[in-house]
Simulated scan of single mutants.
Amino acid sequence: MGDVNFLKVKFATTIWAAGEQGAVGQASEETLGALAAGNAAYEDKFGYIFIMFATGKSADEMLALLQARLPNAPAAEIQITMGE
C-alpha cells in the first residue's frame, strides 16, 4: 500500500463508486507520495493497512487523518479502525 504507482491506479480506478474517494484522482505527486509513505509507516506500526471512511474526502484530508492517527497507541487505533 506504500507504492505511489499503486495509489495512482487505486484512486483512478472506475471500480470505486463515483465520488467515493473525493478528489483523490486529482491529488498531487507530493500528496500521493506522502500517502504512500504514511500508509507504509502505518502498516509497519500497527500490522494492518490504514482504514478510514473515505467517502467525500480529498487526498489531502485523508493524508491529514492518516498523519493524525499514526501517533495513536495500538489499542486506541484498533478501536478507531473497528469503527471505520
Rank of each mutant, 00 (worst) to 15 (best):
A64Q: 07
A18I: 01
G47K: 06
N5H: 04
L7M: 05
T14D: 15
K57P: 03
F46R: 00
E61S: 06
L35W: 02
L32F: 12
I15F: 15
A73K: 13
A36K: 05
P74W: 11
I78L: 14
F6W: 10
E61Q: 15
A73D: 14
V4Q: 06
S58V: 05
M62A: 05
D60P: 03
V9D: 15
E61I: 02
I51C: 00
A59M: 09
K45Q: 02
T14H: 13
Q79I: 11
A41P: 02
T55V: 13
V9A: 15
A12K: 07
D60C: 05
I78G: 05
F46Q: 01
A59Y: 11
Y42K: 04
K57I: 06
G56F: 12
Q26L: 12
I51L: 11
G25T: 05
L70H: 08
P71C: 07
V9T: 15
F50R: 03
A34P: 02
A18L: 03
R69T: 05
G47I: 01
M62T: 11
G47M: 04
M62I: 15
G2C: 11
D60M: 01
A37G: 04
T31L: 02
M1W: 06
G47H: 01
A59L: 10
A17E: 13
Y48C: 05
Q26I: 06
N72M: 12
P74R: 12
I51E: 00
K10M: 14
L70Q: 06
A37E: 08
E20K: 12
K8A: 04
A17H: 08
I78S: 14
Y42V: 07
G2M: 03
